[in-house]
């Protein structure tokens, strides 16, 4: 009796280990006893996230945003099939997600899209947002005005303030206006963003983006800028001519995400070997040996 129990425990233990190693769970029907313990949690997480998205969709009715969201929702559907299942629970999640996607195509399911820390624009914040406006709101308005006047009317696609990040002004900038805007930010006397502190690539699955964290060391004004590129042939103008610090950072993003930076002086791989195939930090990247 006790021996039986021991054996069973051992078996369970094995399965746990297998799950830990993230073996292909599809061919592993014995792992089903474990699912119930995971499933409720997962589903809860998913439903709550979709609720979030709904409420966001209601509170934010910006035309541009929603239009973009539709686009991404469509794109996402296209994208889901080739995604490799990481483990059983993930595939469950993916299935659930795709179900949700088909059910609710008009509502933006692209949770990948939203940055919740970002309150809507100035005009909106007066309406129905319970959060009190950030102390940097006037500065943001001033910045947007300056960009409209000096760079282009449509340069900024959306703007907000990341309150958690010390009220960091965050802009989403149209790719075609980025270089012009960067130049303006660096040379405008009120901003003088001469220090590029961080540059990171992000794979948002429906699109790729590069995030720049800039600061003016003398003005102490800080801004984060997102520039987006599509997945098929991503290309963003290089800012190496403005900030030398971007040189290797852009090479790293090119290497790991496959984003092409036009006019970069030496766009070659920097971390991976030169003959490497693929870009490892992409979400759909499939490693040669999935068990490693």
């Amino acid at each position: 009796m006790s021996e039986d129990k021991n054996q069973r425990e051992e078996k369970d233990h094995k399965q746990e280990q297998e799950q830990g190693h993230k073996l292909e769970q599809k061919s592993e029907p014995s792992s089903t006893p474990h699912e119930p313990s995971h499933e409720p949690l997962q589903q809860e997480a998913i439903s709550s996230s979709t609720q979030d998205v709904h409420s966001q969709a209601i509170s934010q009715e910006e035309k541009v945003e929603t239009a973009a969201l539709h686009e991404t929702a469509n794109l996402e559907q296209k994208q889901t099939p080739p995604k490799p299942p990481a483990n059983a629970t993930d595939t469950e999640a993916a299935k659930d997600k795709s179900k949700n996607d088909t059910k609710a195509t008009p509502t933006p399911t692209g949770s990948a899209k939203e940055r919740p820390a970002k309150p809507p624009r100035a005009a909106k914040s007066a309406e129905a947002v319970p959060e009190e406006p950030s102390p940097l709101q006037p500065l943001l308005d001033q910045l947007l005005e300056g960009i409209k006047r000096e760079v282009a009317e449509s340069a900024v696609q959306s703007a907000g303030i990341n309150q958690k990040n010390g009220h960091l002004i965050t802009l989403v900038v149209a790719c075609e206006h980025w270089l012009r805007l960067a130049e303006w930010l660096k040379h405008d006397p009120a901003w003088q963003c001469n220090y590029l502190r961080n540059l990171s690539g992000v794979d948002q699955e429906s699109y790729l983006e590069v995030v720049y964290h800039l600061i003016g060391l003398s003005t102490r004004r800080e801004v984060a800028i997102h520039v987006r590129a599509d997945c098929d042939s991503p290309s963003i103008p290089s800012v190496t001519s403005l900030w030398e610090a971007a040189n290797w950072n852009e090479r790293e993003v090119y290497d790991l995400f496959g984003i092409h930076f036009s006019d970069h002086p030496n766009l070659t791989r920097i971390m991976m070997p030169d003959q490497w195939v693929g870009h490892p930090l992409r979400k759909d990247y499939e490693p040669l040996d999935s068990e490693v």
Partner: peptide, 29 residues
């Protein structure tokens, strides 16, 4: 859900950590 760029002064300079969270237990990026 949200994103954050935290930075501190390490002996070698500014070390920063940029996290994008999608409300999961693992970071999205």
């Amino acid at each position: 859900e949200g994103e954050i760029y935290a930075r501190i002064e390490s002996p070698r300079g500014e070390i920063g950590c940029y996290i994008i969270s999608k409300g999961k237990a693992e970071p999205y990026r």
